[in-house]
Design a protein around this nucleic acid. Sequence first.
DNA 1: GTAACTGCAAAATATTTGCATCCTT
DNA 2: AAGGATGCAAATATTTTGCAGTTAC
Lengths: 139, 139
Amino acid sequence: MINRSTAILKNSGLSVTAGRKSILDLFIASGNALAHQDIEAGCSEQFDRVTIYRTLQTFLDKGIIHSIPAIDSITRYALCNETCTTTGHHHDNHIHFRCEQCSKTLCLDEVSIPVVKLPDGYLIEEINMVVTGICKSCR
Amino acid sequence: MINRSTAILKNSGLSVTAGRKSILDLFIASGNALAHQDIEAGCSEQFDRVTIYRTLQTFLDKGIIHSIPAIDSITRYALCNETCTTTGHHHDNHIHFRCEQCSKTLCLDEVSIPVVKLPDGYLIEEINMVVTGICKSCR
DNA sequence: GTAACTGCAAAATATTTGCATCCTT
DNA sequence: AAGGATGCAAATATTTTGCAGTTAC
């Protein structure tokens, strides 16, 4: 039985390396969205900044993670769940929640983005919704 | 009759300077959201990078503009309309639309963000919704 | 063995800070 | 005149690129 991070990498046709496994494990363990900085600080071993940039980009390309737009201009990334398509364009249809207390960013997989009606003539390709507030654990 | 940019500055208790007026005029004229870079490139006269950073920050603080989170990690700013509260925390309750064709980002003031129901225990403070697609003029 | 991945160095870019000068009120 | 705003220089921080050495398969 191989572990989850290895399985994800193999599924995406990526070679299994210490760095990638380590970063994936961090995502799996943390359960919330991570910024580049979190990853740099949180990995068991130390990896080069550049490796982290490249690894995140690779994961994005393969649809392993998705990026979450942020008001504080720090982009965070979160693991995609199985329903995301594997290649390129995938539509995470869930809401992101950013807690002002613990400053964690979570994927609320159980809440899907409501339908919006735009004025005539607009074609919707993708919707991103980020809610800020206080999370369950911080109340 | 003083012009709009001057009026906005006076209302916010800011001194009226060439740079601020110029940046505000750009927002007013463009009608869409601008990134730092757009401003640097678009101003009639050339202003120092630093001045632009500081001006945008001042405008944010005063509630003259709001920032729009972006997937491409470029934060853009747009003029607030009159319904925004003047100080600090203000809630722009409209949807932002980013056109993949012309790559403009617009405030759709006429479309308000739909109500979402989060799981019990979550407290909503602010909601941001960014829709990507093709805009009216690009169809 | 080969292709892919990583680390290091360095370049390019973006943002912040301090300070002296200039401008608005 | 006084306080605030700006420009310049420089310090920091972030991201990208090239290349040579290393590792996964």
